[in-house]
Design a protein around this nucleic acid. Structure first.
Lengths: 355, 355
DNA sequence: GTCTTAATTGTGACCGCTCACGGTTTCGGC
DNA sequence: GCCGAAACCGTGAGCGGTCACAATTAAGAC
């Protein structure tokens, strides 16, 4: 499991010997410090390149007590959101030339999370990104939090912590609102799991938007984010609540795919009979039948802001517990149309939005 | 960018002082070494827990010249395959309690790859996993390869290197073969980009299987893995090659989704008129309309084998340039059926395979 | 020419830990 | 009562860097 003693790497002492200067001078040119004459600097630089010197970052980290590594702990990486977060925060850290350490956890139990955080801390990361899509109470992790800079990425633990969110509730409201604009009055909801933050907040958004419009809540069915669960939930809606809705807000695009299939199997036409809007805007959403109107989350910004929020804690102006909030946007396609018998025609040319 | 001097962490010297023993003794109990009396061991262990001691892995790594970190460099993480590889190799490394470092690259140019590898080496990883879906010639990276253990994950550079593959060609042959079994004689191919290894090999597999059956190659159209490109490619097939195929092997499931839509827009029924088989078995494939018959790749095994292959290089029995090959499997659903006017009925009950 | 100052370069200590030994005890055996 | 082997515990060095100085040299100033 552990690698054996390495074949020797070249060290600054080696190049110092080769150049006939002291190791400190070599260190200076490596770090671009002043106080080295142009000629020796050039000489050293040449040797550096020749021997392919690569600084030992663990040694540097140990000596300098500074780190250029960030860690991410996350969960459920097989889903679209978490995996997007992973990819984009890595990219963002790369842009700032930070190395990226990743620790996935299988079950969001406190001890597993603590283990992941500990592992990262043991490696002396300069900060930790945490994305926990479930709503878990991590108050007993608060001590760890104070020990190392961290930011919650679209996650909410029981305690205050610098964080950056995508406004799930707003996204869901936008979805519902569009349906409202299209004249729908009876709007159902295919929920994600409500012990997921996103699941709960999207549910809340749907509710609030309907309440704001002084409309009753439509029927609800639950899923688990998968297409299969969307299929089943839609069947449930059909058999138990048929006639009680003309549109449905679906918690994510995969479930929407399953739902579309369920409606089709019951010979219910989308969007003629039932309008549908999804959430996520996965790359395939534009090629569903019909192309799916949905809510787009800007994960690239999320990643970038998260890293910025982290580095901000580390640099001069101390930890301003900032709470960024990113607004998702509505993407119009063809799965949601004006309710039958309503006046205005649906806006937008959906064909342009296939992708 | 770099974190400032940390607030002091507890070190083995601290706990040594607290317990009244030498740092070496503390080190011994931390590492579970013998030669410590049960009583002092217990005492130290207690203090260890009390102060929440966390060994500084960078220091340990530096002193011991051993590492427990593996690195992955990869590309195009937004696609299904690469992201699966990322997730599963992380899980596999976690199972062996190795820490996972990740370095994505934006463009598979030699210098970018070299930079990523260098970064990982600088962090003294004990080995590197490389997944490069493009076919790039990395022979001038060979020197680096010799410096640190590495394994190619479903990738082929210009030089010999321990590696583990999924047999793309076989997968494609299996897809084609099934279509053949169903009586199809004119089989088209919606290719992925052929500068991707998987794209090329799947193309080759399709060709070889047809040749083995002494059948002519059907028409071909190219895509770029996206659903949108599959849509366009299928349109091309329809307008330029209609009548010249009764089935099509599609290079991945996303493209298949697009293709299905294209056929449907032209009022061509799947599978009654055209049979289709995809590649990847993405979680949604079972909810396509019709549910997609496809080829499943076992990424979990790929990840596990990759890590094993890495650690094998590090441990006793030296680098046997092993080339594992994982066989993908055919998943029967409903998008491929017996060609019209052919005898036997299609096998398997597709409904059972929805997910 | 000597002194001051700035520009270079070198030295010792140390980061937190491991490694290879070197000391003490303890205790049974004769 | 002495010896030797366990069993236990401690010491010094060093991993590959950085940091805070000290030391040397070069360049001006008078």
């Amino acid at each position: 499991m552990r690698s054996p003693p390495k074949k020797k790497n070249v060290t600054i002492h080696d190049v110092a010997a080769l150049t006939g200067v002291s190791y400190q001078t070599v260190s200076r040119v490596i770090n671009g410090m002043p106080d080295v004459s142009a000629t020796t600097r050039a000489r050293i630089q040449q040797v550096l390149a020749e021997v392919g010197f690569r600084p030992n970052l663990t040694a540097r980290q140990l000596a300098s007590k500074r780190s250029t590594t960030v860690g991410l702990v996350t969960f459920a990486t097989s889903f679209y959101g978490p995996s997007q977060i992973m990819v984009h925060s890595e990219q963002a850290s790369k842009e700032l030339s930070l190395t990226f350490m990743f620790s996935g956890i299988v079950e969001p139990r406190t001890r597993d999370i603590r283990r992941a955080v500990d592992e990262l801390c043991a490696h002396q990361v300069c900060g930790i990104l945490i994305h926990l899509p479930w709503e878990v109470d991590l108050r007993d992790l608060q001590d760890v939090c104070r020990n190392v800079p961290m930011v919650a990425v679209d996650s909410d633990f029981g305690f205050k912590c610098p964080s950056v969110f995508i406004d799930q509730e707003l996204g869901s409201r936008k979805a519902t609102r569009r349906l409202l604009q299209l004249g729908h009055k009876k709007i159902a909801h295919l929920r994600g799991p409500v012990f997921w933050r996103a699941g709960r907040l999207r549910d809340v958004g749907w509710q609030k938007e309907l309440k704001a419009a002084r409309l009753p809540l439509g029927p609800v069915a639950d899923g688990d984010w998968t297409a299969e669960s969307g299929f089943k939930a839609a069947q449930e809606l059909i058999s138990n609540h048929w006639g009680k809705f003309t549109a449905v807000v679906v918690a994510n695009d995969q479930m929407a795919l399953g739902a579309i299939r369920a409606f089709e199997e019951s010979s219910i036409h989308i969007p003629e009979q039932i309008s549908l809007v999804g959430f996520d805007d996965i790359p395939e959403a534009g090629l569903f039948r019909p192309p799916l109107s949905t809510i787009k989350q800007d994960f690239a910004s999320l990643g970038r802001l998260s890293i910025q929020c982290l580095t901000a804690q580390v640099e001069p102006g101390r930890a301003n517990v900032s709470n960024h909030m990113i607004q998702p946007s509505f993407v119009e396609r063809e799965s949601a149309v004006r309710v039958a018998g309503s006046k205005r025609a649906p806006r937008a040319n959906p064909a342009a939005n296939r992708r």
